[in-house]
């Protein structure tokens, strides 16, 4: 790892002011992704701004919404009693990510900004448009078992690896950020982006912008929810495919449904068409099978990851079945 300077920010405004326009200065929160990437020389900042002293760790239950500070730890949110009661889907998704040691270090903001686990992105000897723009994509035509099946481009087929973000996309969260031009809010589903011709950009955050918190509007998804994560071993592995489901059921009729998938796209993949299909239907095996097929409509495989088309449909059906039976 290249040596660097590190300074501690004592206020959000000084943190923002200390970030320069290029990437030679970066924020560091839990460090679980950034330190790893710096060891591999995938990123090599000259200066780090340690944001851990900022007052952004609180979980607050406000009028009509829940606010979670960007520096709240993943384990802190996953194990908060009120989060478990009011937003069980979020708690489940967080608990399915990484390991307890990593969740104790990882923050909500850092989780959102973690980079892809595409092996070519991590290997500086390989071409990768996301790491070095216009250098080519190793995964297209290469090893691409983890790759996306929705929203890909000729430049990049990587997936966003977060579990937490899949639940937040399903729950209509909002991201609050602070930058040199002041504060703004971004819909969670607009926060991450598709690769297009600029896969080096994972999201719509501007350089120098700091995530300060996320907000989740109150909802009734306290019972029939499930986060299904399919992976190569039963714990401590990234998702091949994951599904976040939140249902409202009245006498077995679905009055409201939210669905999002992980492991299938460059961003958490919201299934709005499938949600609309489910609304008003009576929960049944057949309906959930149809929903699985509909959810994967338009998906395309790249060779090694073709299995995700069938796995994705089955995972949607399974997640709906489990959620409905709770």
């Amino acid at each position: 790892m290249k040596n660097f300077q590190i300074i501690k920010a004592l206020s959000s405004s000084s943190a923002v002011a200390s970030i320069t326009k290029d990437t030679s200065v970066m924020f560091i929160a839990g460090g679980t992704n950034l330190v790893d990437l710096m060891k591999k020389n995938v990123v090599a900042p000259d200066k780090l701004i340690d944001i851990n002293a900022l007052d952004l760790k609180k979980i607050e239950f406000l009028n009509g919404k829940v606010s979670i500070g960007a520096l709240a730890k993943n384990s802190q949110v996953a194990e908060d009693q009120s989060i478990k009661e009011k937003l069980p889907l979020l708690a489940l998704a967080l608990a399915a990510g990484a390991s307890q040691q990593i969740r104790h270090m990882a923050t909500v903001g850092g989780n959102m900004l973690q980079r892809t686990r595409c092996p070519y992105f991590y290997n500086t000897d390989m071409p990768c448009n996301k790491r070095v723009p216009k250098s080519g994509c190793g995964a297209i035509g290469g090893t691409n078992r983890m790759a996306a099946v929705f929203g890909t481009s000729d430049s990049c087929i990587a997936v966003h690896p977060s579990d937490m973000c899949v639940a937040l996309a399903a729950l209509d969260a909002t991201v609050l950020v602070e930058g040199p031009k002041g504060k703004r809010q971004i819909n969670f589903t607009d926060f991450h982006r598709l690769p297009g011709n600029t896969p080096e950009k994972d999201n719509t955050l501007e350089i120098r912008e700091l995530i300060t918190s996320i907000e989740i509007p109150d909802n009734n998804f306290t019972k029939n929810v499930h986060y299904l994560k399919v992976r190569d071993r039963s714990s401590y592995a990234f998702a091949l495919v994951s599904v976040a489901v939140a249902l409202e059921l009245k006498n077995n009729v679905i009055s409201n449904a939210k669905l999002a998938m992980g492991g299938v796209a460059h961003k958490p993949w919201r299934l709005t068409e499938t949600e609309d299909f489910l609304k008003g239907k009576t929960a049944s095996e057949d309906i959930f099978k149809q929903a699985g097929k509909l959810g994967m409509k338009g998906a395309r495989g790249y060779g090694d990851n073709d299995f995700k088309l069938t796995l994705g449909a089955n995972a949607i059906t399974e997640a709906l079945t489990i959620a409905a039976s709770k």
Partner: peptide, 24 residues
């Protein structure tokens, strides 16, 4: 961060020392 062999307690919490900058 992939194996846990470096697990220590910092202020009573288990963390991975390989992904933690000492200066922090």
């Amino acid at each position: 961060g992939q194996c846990g062999a470096c697990t220590v307690h910092v202020n009573g919490t288990r963390i991975l020392s390989c992904l933690s900058l000492a200066t922090m």
